[in-house]
Simulated scan of single mutants.
Amino acid sequence: MTTLYDTGPAAEGQLHALVIGVDHYPYCGRTTRLEPPWRDFARAVSPLNCAVPSALAVVDWLRRHLSDRVHPVGSIELLLSAQQEQQVEGCDVERATMANVQTAFDRWYDRCDRNPDDVALLFFCGHGLRLGSEDVLLLEDFGADRHRVFDNAIDFRETYYGMRMAKAGIQCFLLDACRNTPEDLAGRAKACATALKHASPSLESRDAPIVYSALQGSRAPAPDGSPTRFTEAAIQALEGGSADHTVPGWPVTTDLLHFGINRLLGWGEKPDGRQFAAHGGQAFGGTIHALDVPMVPFRFGCDPHAALPHAYLHLANPERKFARPPAEIVWRGAAPADSYSLRAEFAAQGYAGEPATVMLLPPYKDSLLKVTPA
Rank of each mutant, 00 (worst) to 15 (best):
P116V: 10
Y109C: 13
L139G: 08
R148E: 13
V119H: 02
N152M: 00
L121R: 04
D141V: 06
C112A: 11
M98G: 11
V101A: 02
R146G: 02
P116Y: 02
L121P: 01
V119P: 00
R107I: 06
L131T: 09
R107T: 11
F124Q: 05
C125K: 01
D110L: 13
R146Y: 06
D106G: 09
L122D: 01
A104G: 11
Y109M: 12
A120W: 03
R148W: 10
N115V: 08
D110N: 13
F123H: 12
N100W: 01
V136N: 07
L131E: 04
D113L: 05
F124N: 09
V101M: 06
A120S: 14
V149I: 15
D113T: 12
G126W: 02
A104Y: 00
N115W: 05
D117C: 02
D110C: 05
E134R: 12
H127C: 09
A99T: 12
D151K: 14
L138W: 07
D113P: 04
G126A: 10
N100D: 13
L137D: 08
R114D: 07
L137N: 10
S133V: 12
L139V: 02
R146F: 05
T97F: 04
D113F: 05
G126T: 10
C125G: 12
C112H: 03
F105C: 02
P116R: 11
H127F: 09
P116W: 03
W108M: 09
M98D: 00
F123G: 09
D110Q: 15
D135L: 12
D106P: 00
R111E: 05
V149G: 07
T97P: 04
L121H: 06
C125E: 11
P116I: 10
D113G: 06
D118F: 00
F142M: 07
D110R: 15
G132L: 05
L121M: 12
F142D: 02
D141G: 04
D145M: 02
E140W: 00
R111S: 04
D141Q: 01
A104D: 08
F142H: 11
A104E: 12
E134I: 08
V149R: 07
Y109L: 13
V149W: 01
S133Y: 09
D118T: 08
R114G: 01
G128Q: 07
Y109F: 15
R146Q: 12
A104F: 00
Y109I: 00
M98F: 07
L129E: 03
L129V: 07
L122I: 13
V119I: 10
A144G: 03
L121C: 06
D135P: 00
V101R: 06
D135A: 12
A99H: 11
V101D: 03
G132N: 08
F150S: 04
D110V: 10
R111Y: 00
G126F: 02
V119C: 08
N152S: 14
C112M: 04
G126D: 03
A120D: 09
V101Y: 01
L137F: 08
L129K: 07
L131Y: 03
T97N: 06
H147N: 15
G132A: 10
H147R: 14
R111M: 03
F142L: 09
D118R: 04
D141N: 15
N115S: 04
D110S: 15
F124T: 11
M98A: 11
D151H: 13
